Deep mutational scan, measured.
Amino acid sequence: VLKALERTRQLDIPDEKTMPVLMKLLEEAGGNWSYIKLDNYTALVDAIYSVED
């Protein structure tokens, strides 16, 4: 979780936006981090930006 938060902080995305999206992605992935961690957490960042749209 810390590495995911560090990555999104680099992009000026607050933890308050990151955590709900991260928890949803983890739930959808059955707790499997490998998809979320791919390409420096690209799936997480993309999911956060899609929620903002």
Score class of each variant (00 low, 15 high):
E6L: 09
L5F: 04
E28T: 09
E27A: 12
E28S: 10
K17P: 01
W33A: 03
P20W: 09
K3Q: 15
V51R: 10
Y35E: 12
S50F: 11
A29M: 13
G31N: 09
E27F: 10
D12S: 14
D39L: 06
L25D: 00
K17W: 09
V1C: 14
L44P: 00
G31M: 08
V1T: 08
D53K: 13
A47K: 08
P14Y: 04
K37Y: 12
Y35M: 12
L22Y: 01
K37A: 15
G30F: 08
M19I: 15
D39M: 08
L11W: 05
E16G: 08
E28G: 08
S50E: 12
A47D: 02
T42K: 15
K24L: 08
G31C: 10
K3E: 15
L11F: 08
A4M: 02
D53R: 14
Q10E: 12
K24P: 00
V45L: 13
L44R: 00
T8H: 02
D15R: 02
K24V: 07
P14V: 04
D39H: 09
Y49H: 12
I48Y: 03
M23N: 08
L44W: 03
D46H: 13
D15L: 04
V21S: 04
E6W: 06
A43T: 09
L44Y: 02
I36F: 01
Q10M: 13
A47R: 09
L44M: 02
L38P: 06
D46T: 13
I13H: 02
I36Q: 01
M23F: 09
L26V: 05
D12N: 15
P14Q: 04
V21C: 07
D39P: 03
E28K: 11
Y41N: 00
I13Y: 04
T8G: 02
Y35G: 13
P20N: 08
D12I: 05
W33P: 03
L11S: 04
P14R: 06
A47E: 06
K37P: 07
E16K: 08
Q10L: 12
E16A: 11
P20Y: 11
D15K: 02
V21D: 02
L2R: 13
Q10F: 10
D12G: 15
M23I: 10
Q10T: 07
N32Q: 07
L26C: 04
G30H: 11
Y41L: 04
K37E: 15
K24Y: 07
T8N: 01
L22G: 00
P20S: 10
M23G: 05
D15F: 06
I13W: 04
I48V: 08
T8I: 07
P14S: 09
S34P: 06
R9V: 02
M19A: 02
R9E: 02
M19S: 03
T8L: 09
V1K: 06
Y41F: 10
I36W: 03
K3F: 01
I13V: 06
K3H: 13
E28D: 11
L26T: 00
M19C: 13
M23Y: 09
I36Y: 02
I13R: 02
I13S: 02
T8Y: 05
D53E: 14
N32V: 07
E16P: 05
R7C: 09
K17V: 15
E52H: 12
P20R: 11
Y35A: 13
E27H: 11
Y41V: 01
L25E: 03
Y35V: 13
D15Q: 02
S50I: 10
E52A: 12
D53L: 14
R7I: 12
S50R: 14
Y35W: 13
L38F: 12
D46V: 11
K3N: 12
T42M: 13
L2P: 08
S50D: 11
K24T: 07
V1M: 12
V51A: 14
Y41I: 05
L22N: 00
D39G: 10
N40I: 04
D12F: 12
T18M: 06
Y49A: 11
E6D: 06
L25V: 04
R7A: 10
L5T: 04
L5Q: 02
N32S: 11
D46K: 14
L22A: 01
A29F: 15
K37N: 11
L2K: 14
A4I: 04
G31Q: 07
G30W: 05
T8Q: 01
R7Q: 07
V45K: 02
T18V: 15
N32A: 08
E28N: 09
R7V: 12
K24M: 10
W33N: 01
S34H: 15
D15M: 03
I48T: 02
V21P: 01
G30T: 04
L2T: 14
V51W: 14
N40H: 07
Y49T: 10
D53V: 13
L5N: 03
D53A: 15
V21L: 06
K3T: 09
A29E: 09
E52G: 11
Y35S: 14
K17E: 07
M19K: 04
P14E: 07
E16Q: 09
N40R: 06
P14F: 05
L5E: 03
L5D: 03
E27M: 10
P20K: 12
D12L: 14
T8P: 02
A43K: 11
A47L: 07
T42A: 15
Y41K: 00
K37D: 10
A43I: 11
T42S: 15
E6K: 06
L11V: 05
V1P: 05
L26E: 00
T42P: 01
V1E: 06
E28W: 10
L11C: 09
W33L: 04
E28M: 13
L38G: 09
K3M: 09
L26R: 00
T8E: 02
E6Q: 12
K24D: 06
R9Q: 05
T18F: 04
K24E: 05
A43H: 09
D53F: 12
D53N: 13
K3W: 02
S34N: 14
D12R: 14
A29T: 15
V21I: 13
A4H: 04
W33D: 07
E6H: 08
P14K: 07
G31P: 04
M23C: 11
V51H: 11
A4D: 05
K3C: 14
D53G: 13
P20Q: 11
M19Y: 10
T42F: 13
P20F: 10
Y35Q: 13
L44I: 03
L22I: 06
L11K: 03
L38V: 10
G31T: 04
L5W: 00
T8W: 05
S50C: 09
V45G: 00
S50G: 13
T8C: 14
L11H: 07
T42W: 11
Y49V: 09
L5G: 04
G30C: 11
K3L: 13
Y35D: 11
R7K: 07
S34A: 13
K17M: 11
K37R: 12
L25R: 01
N32T: 05
A4P: 03
I48C: 01
T18Y: 03
E6F: 08
V21K: 03
N32Y: 05
E6A: 09
L44N: 00
A47V: 06
D46F: 09
L44V: 05
E16C: 14
N40C: 07
I13P: 01
K37W: 13
V45Q: 02
A29V: 12
L25T: 01
K17D: 07
D46N: 15
V1D: 05
E6R: 05
D39V: 05
I36N: 00
T42C: 08
A43V: 11
E28P: 01
A47G: 06
Y49I: 11
E52F: 12
S34V: 10
D12A: 13
E27V: 10
I36P: 00
D46E: 14
G31V: 05
Y41W: 12
E16T: 12
W33M: 05
